[in-house]
Amino acid sequence: YWDNKLKTTDIKIFICGSSIRMMEKHFFNYSSPHYGRRTKQFKLQPLGFSALKDFFPSAGLEELLAIYAVFGGTPAYMLEYENDIFETIRTRMLRKEEFLHKDAEFILREELREPRYYFSIIRSIAFGNTTTGRIMNDTGITKDVVAKYLSTLQDLDIIERHVPVTENIKSRKGIYRIKDNYFRFYFRFIFPYMEYIEMGEEDFVLREIKTNFQRYSGLVFEYVVTDLIKENRNLIQMQFTRIGSWWSAGDEIDIVAINENTGEILFGEVKYTNKLVGVKTLSTLREKAKNVKWGTDNRPEHYLVISKSGFEKDIMDKDVTLIDLNTLEKITKIQNHN
């Protein structure tokens, strides 16, 4: 009917689907009757952190970060929020009749043939096992199988591979990260405690979540800050061609930005704690920066410290860019206004 009647008209047909496997089967598979008939395709990504202000205009930055850390950028998930993050977790995720209770599992079961092994791998990554070796040791799954499943999870946009910003994509230092915060939260705090939830132990699970939530949110804060810098390049004192993080032999730097044209490099530390940050943090950052092998011996270096709770006086007069929560709050308001 399309070929004989509709193709020459102004009619446009939009087909949406949340299952990558289903969409590929019906529109990208050569044996499908729809193959070759699509004119365009779009892969919709989750909303970024900056978009949350449109959904929750009265929320402060910390509240927005908590929402984003639990629900990610999927509007249907975000709209389940009920003014208090822990009460929302209790009523929308810890209760068996709610759709968020197992939606991550349902989505993966729809996409995957052997979900049990994939669940084990995603759970392992959620608990901080981010290299192939550590995932193997944690899950007991062989190297070949882990590699195959990691590749599939990347194809499905569930996880992504990162390398230090100073390395190329083929670096052996690559680590894996769960892309979507809802999946990351689910496999860190819901999936491992499913037995307790089934027994009605909501209070116990919620205590576990509260105990570990600030540490969990700290990593999300690092990613959010990096994205905000990409969107607001005047936040730091140099132009950059690449930005990310860096790690090697036990050392890690939260933010590293480089300019491959000028040879400049910036090192940044992100602190999501309730304590003021002082000069000791800057001194430690400077020491770690010496281990970053990039550029020339006399490369221009810049330093950045971002703190949730502000700064002590001893760091104020140092040669470093300081960014606190108030500055980030203003940026998100400006972006929302634009």
Rank of each mutant, 00 (worst) to 15 (best):
Y149I: 04
L6V: 08
H337N: 06
G48M: 01
T91K: 11
V224D: 00
N261F: 15
I11V: 03
K179G: 02
L235V: 09
D317C: 13
I20E: 02
I20M: 03
T139A: 07
E111N: 06
T284Y: 10
D297S: 12
T142M: 04
L108A: 10
I243C: 14
F221A: 07
P164M: 08
F99A: 10
E98L: 10
F56G: 01
Y216L: 14
K96T: 10
N274A: 14
N274R: 11
G263P: 06
N181L: 13
R299Q: 07
R177K: 14
R116M: 13
G17I: 00
E264H: 04
E80C: 03
T130S: 13
T211A: 12
F183C: 02
R113E: 12
T226R: 08
H101L: 03
I135W: 02
G36L: 00
E167P: 00
N261W: 14
M136L: 07
T8K: 07
Y1W: 07
K330N: 10
N291I: 05
D180S: 13
R188A: 00
E287W: 03
R38H: 06
S120H: 08
L79Y: 04
Y272E: 11
R116S: 11
D314C: 02
E312C: 06
L266G: 00
N168L: 12
T241I: 05
V205E: 00
T296D: 08
Q335G: 11
E62F: 11
G48F: 02
F191S: 12
F221N: 01
D251K: 04
K280E: 12
Y81L: 00
V145R: 04
L156P: 00
D3V: 02
Y176N: 10
F127W: 05
S307Y: 03
L156H: 09
T166D: 07
K173D: 13
K12G: 08
L282M: 03
I85V: 13
G48W: 00
T273Y: 10
E287C: 07
S171F: 12
A126N: 00
I315Q: 02
I209V: 06
I175F: 03
R215L: 12
S58G: 08
F42R: 06
T327D: 13
V320K: 00
H34F: 15
I258Q: 10
Y303L: 03
Y303S: 07
N137E: 15
